[in-house]
């Protein structure tokens, strides 16, 4: 099982690709609503991409209220 740090890095790099950002432009504590200026729907689209990548299912309730990459990575990690 990958370490949380690796999962976090993978989440960040996928989010950068998804939103066409330069590599390294996002960090674990970034608030994705604020940093990316996205709405809740766009977050759901990112989640689908993350699910496909990690081959997991993240129920909507697991990510309810989550707004930073670090917590998001933790939720993913718990399902790997």
């Amino acid at each position: 099982m990958p370490m949380l740090e690796n999962t976090t890095q993978e989440v960040l790099s996928l989010a950068e690709k998804h939103f066409n950002l330069a590599p390294g432009s996002l960090s674990p504590n970034d608030d994705f609503f604020k940093k990316l200026g996205i709405d809740s729907l766009q977050t759901l689209e990112l989640l689908s991409r993350l699910e496909n990548h990690f081959n997991i299912e993240l129920p909507d309730y697991e990510v309810q209220g989550v707004s930073d990459f670090k917590t998001l990575a933790e939720r993913i990690q718990s399902r790997l």
Partner: peptide, 9 residues
């Protein structure tokens, strides 16, 4: 009809 996820797809 209820859906347990609201993912667009």
């Amino acid at each position: 009809v209820h859906l347990r996820t609201l993912r667009p797809e």
